[in-house]
Design a binder for these strands. Structure first.
Lengths: 237, 237
DNA sequence: ATTTCCCTCCCCAGAAATGGCGAGGCCGAA
DNA sequence: TTCGGCCTCGCCATTTCTGGGGAGGGAAAT
């Protein structure tokens, strides 16, 4: 990690508004001499957030067409832990190829590296660097700066969460152990009858737990409660 | 990042077995001159994995008593994105305090920093460094090595996933767009009736999607299917 | 010591989900 | 072109879940 980047990261950690993050991606783009630097959250229920160097037209089209659903970068990164080079992704499929063509003509660049970032409560975001480059020089670039990009993506997301989590998204009350047991068993496919048997309690008691958990989570129904508990990390499959 | 650590990370990336990871935590402990270095996955349904420098007695007791459920480190890290200093955690509560006492007498150390790590499919792991130290010197240590620890935790988890995911946990077939729609709406708390209305299709058609998705996922019921889809990243809440 | 959770149990009736039967059209791949 | 997958619709019977009542004991926190 060279000194210049340390300064950029320090600046990032001092960021006090979303505008500072927007500024940071431009600084990063210039620092690495790439075409684009993009940080964006990938979530449906919460309000989306992004700090990026793409043009407004491409961003608008991406959102309008809901490209996140077919974008192989998003889909692929969701399945992986380590940073993903765009070349490694599956670009077969009609939708993916036409999307790729459109992206390239929008000036996104033919090469890209995307870092998946996962936060609490099911948060998922991507930090991406993209450029127009030959395969070998791009490979050199990514392996040289992998650690840097990991750190930048981490601090970028940390800041984004700070600004975003102002509107508290955290669960007010924790679930009781029994409530966790109940939702866990349901999430693992057991019916209420099976789950109550597993726990050695009456089915009614199990229902009380589910209902209590449902209220705490503000869920509409059992499936919703399980989904919320899962994505909030309150239960683990 | 000094050269010594770069070598350790390079060694880590060359690791070819779980024994290498076990070895790595000892190297890291010596390198940082701390009391303990711990990497462990925190998952219920999948087989747990850990590479750590704790004594067997403490590990055994931790597992036996299922301390992960009350350990404020685990509980706290679940809710946070940035590394957590143990001092910041909530140690009130009877169970937490008695656990803390037991941990300290087991030689864990009074200071600790834990890095939450999240992987795909709901994976969650912790990378922890702990020592017996005064507050100020510990603070200096953690702020000096924060970036290092972030990188180490990342590569450690990457390796752990490589070894663990040998037994393929991936879904065989992808879900169709409509199936994704259906499960997404259910995961967001809509009933079948509401969801079918949202999509502008008959309730029966929606049922067909749910059923198809359920079969593809090998789920027992709708809630199970939603849970599987969520934790496999096929749908996003 | 009082309150506030948590755990446990019971009954009932209406709403919703499930499982299995069937059918047709469309599109892309082999 | 034929096969498989996807999207769309309908009906019926059974099981399961949901939402509303209550009720008691225990542990922990303020």
């Amino acid at each position: 990690m060279d000194g210049k980047l340390e300064i950029l990261i320090a600046k990032l950690q001092e960021a006090s508004s979303k505008a500072d993050l927007q500024n940071a991606v431009f600084l990063l783009r210039d620092h690495y001499d790439v075409d684009h630097v993009v940080y964006h959250s990938v979530n449906q229920s919460r309000e989306p957030y992004a700090a990026l160097t793409y043009g407004e037209d491409w961003v608008g089209r991406y959102l309008e067409k809901d490209y996140a659903r077919i974008d192989p970068v998003v889909q692929g990164c969701y399945q992986k832990f380590r940073p993903v080079d765009w070349k490694q992704l599956d670009w077969s499929g009609k939708a993916a190829r036409s999307f790729l063509g459109e992206a390239i003509s929008a000036g996104v660049g033919n090469q890209g590296l995307s870092v998946p970032i996962r936060g609490p409560n099911g948060q998922f975001a991507l930090f991406t660097v993209s450029a127009k480059a030959a395969d070998d020089s791009w490979q050199r670039f990514t392996s040289d700066h992998l650690s840097d990009l990991l750190l930048v993506s981490h601090f970028m997301n940390q800041k984004a969460l700070e600004f975003d989590d102002a509107e508290d998204r955290t669960i007010s009350r924790q679930l009781s152990p029994r409530e966790v047991d109940a939702l866990s068993l349901l999430a693992n496919g057991q019916s209420r009858g099976q789950a109550s048997e597993t726990l050695g309690i009456s089915e009614h008691t199990l229902r009380v737990y589910i209902e209590a958990a449902r209220l705490k989570l503000g869920a509409q129904n059992t499936t919703h409660a399980v989904a919320l508990a899962l994505s909030h990390g309150l239960i683990i499959l």
